[in-house]
Design a binder for these strands. Structure first.
Length: 270
DNA sequence: CCTGGAACCTGGTAGC
DNA sequence: TGCTACCAGGTTCCAG
């Protein structure tokens, strides 16, 4: 479910209520992708100092250590004063003196992991291999092009891998490649510098636009019950067989590494 | 090092 | 209606 825009929207909506909050109790439901890594009791009394994002991870800096949150495919967060009793997919409740942060995640691909610091082994195992942040200055066309050298895999696959640039998931990879006029199957290393520059601009454009409209709500993405609207502006994603909004050619659907890829065969000729 | 495929888990839906 | 098969916004692990 959540790619960079959805995670960032989540962060922005919960941050001010969470910063300064002190953890009073922790309730765990069914196990997530990884164990918490610390006794829940050890979190009691900790105070949230900041809420940051790295790729698709949310980092809750505590006065001692930090929590790494991932929403997986189906996770979402709610922060509230009087939440209903936990349902069968509410797997973490962080009760604080400023309300409860609840992780709801039917598929349980998400995670909440405690680390002593951002540089310790636990955090590095999750964050260490991540690529550059697409909305930061370090993501520039020259370095992007250089990072694609030696990657024979299709550009769509490389974008999803997240070791070059983070935060671009299945929706925004297809959308960015459409905006850049690039066929998703093109080997990454075969893209010329100007085409990589177009892709660089397209990635930023699509992520920023999605961010501005609250992300994409296809099925279940929500923060405190509120969804986003980017799905209304999609050019190709989830539009197999429908006419391209630019040229009218039917949008094509292919599988790349067990993921659906959508593109316009005419607008994305190569 | 890079790559593609399987795995993790649950729910919704299309098709018979 | 009921069953089956496949699909879903992500990531890691493994073999080649």
């Amino acid at each position: 479910m959540p790619e960079l825009p959805e995670v960032e929207v989540t962060r922005l909506r919960i941050a001010d209520r969470l910063v300064g909050a002190r953890i009073e109790a922790v309730r765990l439901g069914q196990p997530l992708r990884w164990p918490l890594g610390v006794a829940p009791q050890a979190l009691v009394g900790r105070q949230v100092r900041a809420v940051r994002r790295r790729g698709k991870y949310l980092l809750l800096d505590l006065d001692e250590g930090l929590l790494l949150l991932h929403l997986g495919m189906s996770g979402s967060l709610t922060m509230g004063e009087a939440l209903p009793p936990p349902g069968r997919h509410d797997h973490v409740d962080l009760h604080t003196d400023r309300g409860t942060l609840r992780l709801h995640d039917p598929r349980r691909f998400g995670a909440v992991v405690h680390a002593r610091g951002e540089d310790d082994a636990v955090a590095q195992r999750l964050l260490g291999g991540l690529g550059v942040e697409p909305l930061e200055a370090a993501f520039d066309p020259i370095r992007f092009h250089a990072a694609l050298r030696g990657r024979r895999a299709p550009i769509k696959t490389v974008l999803l891998a997240g070791d070059v640039v983070v935060g671009v998931g299945n929706i925004y990879a297809s959308e960015a490649l459409f905006l850049a006029g690039i066929r998703p199957t093109t080997p990454a290393m075969r893209l010329s510098r100007p085409r990589v520059a177009r892709l660089h601009a397209a990635i930023r454009q699509v992520l920023q636009r999605a961010l501005a409209v609250g992300g994409s709500t296809l099925r279940d993405f929500r923060v405190d019950g509120q969804g986003g609207y980017f799905q209304l502006e999609m050019w190709v994603y989830d539009r197999a067989g429908q006419p391209c909004r630019v040229c009218g050619t039917p949008i094509r659907l292919i599988r790349q590494g067990q993921r659906s890829t959508y593109y316009c065969p005419r607008c994305q000729a190569r």
